[in-house]
């Protein structure tokens, strides 16, 4: 399975994982350094709060795409669990298709939003950097989530199993979440 699509998929997965992990570690360092600076040296990082906000935006939207890839999503399966395998499969396929559509739409709206705040030149208050640079991650996050749902839709059409994402097959264990 060494086709280009597979490789791209692996590379983006690794990249996402790196961004998420690094974002979380940076949050920790940022807060710790700020508090130590304030208490020990009477010096606060004026941008600390803002940096954490940026990091949380990045982690949330990249992490969302990553969660979709891993087939981890919060959903209520009370009714779903009562259906037959065939009906579950049809429902999952339909959900994958419509959720993909929604994700692409949100990605498009996010893209428009990013353009808007670029046009009005919004600068962050502490670091004075253009905010759109950070928020550009949002359309990407939704787009990748959309791709994941779309490929799960296709996998469900091509294979007999129920696919939660491109590479995650539903089992009894991961009906709601799996890692």
């Amino acid at each position: 399975m060494k086709n280009p699509l597979f490789i791209i998929n692996r590379v983006t997965e690794k990249l996402e994982a790196f961004i998420i992990g690094a974002g979380i570690i940076l949050m920790m360092l940022n807060s710790v350094i700020n508090a130590m600076g304030r208490y020990l040296f009477n010096y606060s990082l004026y941008f600390s709060e803002e940096l954490n906000q940026f990091l949380i935006v990045i982690v949330t939207f990249v992490g969302f795409a990553y969660a979709v890839r891993m087939g981890r999503n919060i959903r209520m399966t009370a009714v779903y669990d009562m259906l037959s395998f065939k009906k579950q499969k049809i429902l999952t396929t339909f959900i994958a298709f419509s959720t993909a559509t929604l994700m692409f739409y949100l990605s498009y709206e996010a893209y428009l939003y990013v353009l808007d705040i670029r046009d009005i030149n919004r600068l962050s208050s502490a670091l004075q950097i253009p905010v759109y640079l950070i928020y550009s991650i949002i359309p990407f996050g939704f787009f990748i989530a959309g791709l994941q749902y779309a490929s799960s839709f296709i996998m469900n059409l091509l294979h007999p199993e129920i696919y939660l994402s491109f590479s995650v097959i539903e089992t009894k264990d991961n009906q709601d979440m799996q890692l």
Binding site: N42, S44, Y46, Q128
Partner: peptide, 23 residues
Amino acid sequence: KIRTFTSAIPTETYKVFGATPTP
């Protein structure tokens, strides 16, 4: 340690005044 708004002018103001501006 004085709590100020995060933007540049207030932060610099209290720095110049000798305090520790803290957002």
